[in-house]
């Protein structure tokens, strides 16, 4: 099977990579490019742990064929911080106790970031709806929703 040459811009950095046609974006990010902050869980597009932002849209990278993303701008959890300053969502997750085992955390952060970029002033109900594609088994969601709501409220001021 022929490899397909693509360019992925990950967290502002261009990567040339030859991918197999069957290779998923998650595998390329983790295994080829070393962005292991994005976790693999269900590989069925259900749990949202592998969520990254592709051209502004939250995407479950476990079901996305890498070859489709030539030229795409991708943000992973490693790309949330800038110049040593954390994203307000990262700060809020720490402050509100929204992290326990942490395996779902990168996926939640990326879903929430993509959502808040589109809708900076959501209602709590809208936040819950936006996070419906991410599974957390530890927290019961309350503190995650609280954290996202806190960021939304602060950006509203």
């Amino acid at each position: 099977m022929a490899n397909i040459d693509i360019t992925l811009n990950v967290n502002g950095k261009d990567h040339r990579v030859a991918v197999r046609s069957t290779e998923m974006l998650l595998e390329v990010l983790r295994d080829r490019l070393g962005y292991v902050g994005t976790n693999k869980v269900c590989a069925q597009g259900i749990c949202g742990a592998c969520t990254v932002i592709v051209d502004g849209k939250s995407t479950t990278s476990c079901l996305a064929l890498a070859a489709q993303f030539d030229g795409a701008r991708i943000i992973t959890v490693e790309g949330l911080e800038h110049d040593g300053k954390l994203d307000p969502l990262q700060e809020a997750f720490m402050k509100h106790g929204a992290v326990q085992c942490g395996y779902c955390t990168p996926g939640f952060l990326m879903s929430a970031r993509a959502f808040l970029n589109d809708n900076p002033h959501p209602t709590r109900t809208e936040i819950i709806d936006a996070l419906r594609g991410n599974i957390c088994r530890c927290t019961g969601y309350k503190k995650i929703i609280d954290a996202v709501e806190d960021v939304a409220a602060r950006s509203a001021r």
């Binding site: 962005y35 292991v36 902050g37 994005t38 976790n39 693999k40 992973t76 959890v77 490693e78 949330l80 911080e81 954390l86 990262q90 997750f93 720490m94 402050k95 106790g97 992290v99 942490g102 395996y103 955390t105 990168p106 952060l109």
Partner: peptide, 21 residues
């Protein structure tokens, strides 16, 4: 007191060393 977890900085930054990583 509700002190933040001592592993939380690593977890929110995607730096935690899970076995898969």
């Amino acid at each position: 007191h509700s002190v933040p977890r001592n592993d939380v900085l690593y977890k929110v930054r995607g730096k935690a060393k899970y076995a898969a990583n």
